[in-house]
Design a protein around this nucleic acid. Structure first.
Lengths: 204, 204
DNA sequence: CGGGCTATGTTAGGGGCGCTAACATCAAAT
DNA sequence: ATTTGATGTTAGCGCCCCTAACATAGCCCG
């Protein structure tokens, strides 16, 4: 019993932290079969609960998917920050690491990555997913501004941030769609593309 | 009766060209409510047929969605070629028009655009959607090669094509996700971004 | 220590949807 | 004219989303 108690917030109740467990189940099933094939009932079977249990934690199936997407983009943000933090702030290496972590997340969890943007793009008004996206973009602008030796973001640094963001975002989709190949079929190293294209954009 | 006969292949049977009509209904519904909310039954109601009718033309709901996506990417390809054809082959203007038509399609039919790449990326083996995608990419490589005054594509022209494709693809997603904004909130003109970024990449 | 209170789980069931089987109808071929 | 095959219909099975009604476990307060 001591082993179970070690898990911070688990076993708090009947079952444990079912909400978090259902989010993990949702992410696993989406990655395995795609979001179209996802069913709440499948997630319940994976978590070992009845098919009505999720409705104590989520209003609808769509709500469950959005919670999974929110958890995903937050994990992505954390990983990007952790990667950038291993380099000096405002350095070229830090910016590259930031972008590389972006594409790496897309490659690691492609279906979740796609769903994050489907939801964020479709939602009419502000939502937590878009908010986290804004935080990522703000961190990018901040790094670019520092790199350029400025104290405050201006039009130039934000346009450069947009260009970098475009490249990284486009690379992510090309990577998960299997289109990152040389004409002979050999794979393109996206890290190299980010470093070289990023460098060209920054010192334009 | 003469008026109905004017429609080329319609009214050929009981109902008309139900397959094409269902594809249009599918696209309309996807754009309206998102692919998650799409149901075959809704498409049937929109087309005015029973809920069993689609299964004479499509094996499954997924098959119907894929047919809608295939129709979409083919229309996209046609529009891109038509736009590029208004300029000299291998010209900067032609290449810009090609890319601009790409983003314009994404903006006009964002849900379909997203679905095209979800399907193309998820499918294990070759499929007609990926094939059409390859045709678009091949046309890009061809234009770049001509622009550079070469007779055959080589590593340089295909790497530049990949960069251009990355930018256009990334811009499309940023546009439909509502992220193409200046820091003050005013919209960014994606045509200008394509022309300037494209120019910088081409004459690097 | 004991009795509500609330949070979280269960079972049962309504309504909708994907898909199939069996039958109907129309156009074309013989 | 009859047959044939393509394309439509109705009826129905099974699964799924979600809700209602009930059960149980920890928490607060005497």
């Amino acid at each position: 019993m001591a082993a179970k108690a070690a898990v911070s917030r688990k076993d708090a109740y009947h079952h444990g932290d079912l909400r978090a467990q259902l989010i993990r189940a949702t992410q696993a099933l989406i990655e395995e079969r795609g979001p179209e094939k996802f069913s709440v009932a499948d997630a319940c079977r994976l978590a070992g609960v009845s098919t009505a249990a999720p409705y104590r934690h989520f209003d609808t199936k769509q709500d469950m998917l959005e919670a999974a997407a929110l958890d995903g983009i937050r994990r992505k943000y954390q990983r990007m920050c952790a990667a950038a933090a291993q380099h000096p702030p405002g350095s070229m290496e830090g910016l590259s690491a930031f972008g590389i972590a972006y594409v790496e997340f897309a490659i690691a969890e492609p279906e979740l990555f796609r769903m994050i943007f489907s939801i964020a793009g479709r939602e009419d008004c502000a939502n937590p997913i878009s908010d986290t996206g804004e935080m990522i973009y703000a961190a990018c602008i901040d790094s670019v501004t520092r790199y350029m030796g400025k104290s405050e973001p201006d039009d130039e640094s934000s346009m450069i941030s947009l260009s970098l963001w475009t490249v990284v975002h486009g690379l992510s989709f090309l990577a998960i769609d299997g289109k990152l190949k040389h004409p002979d079929g050999s794979p393109v190293d996206f890290r190299e593309v980010i470093r070289s294209t990023g460098g060209r954009i920054l010192r334009q």
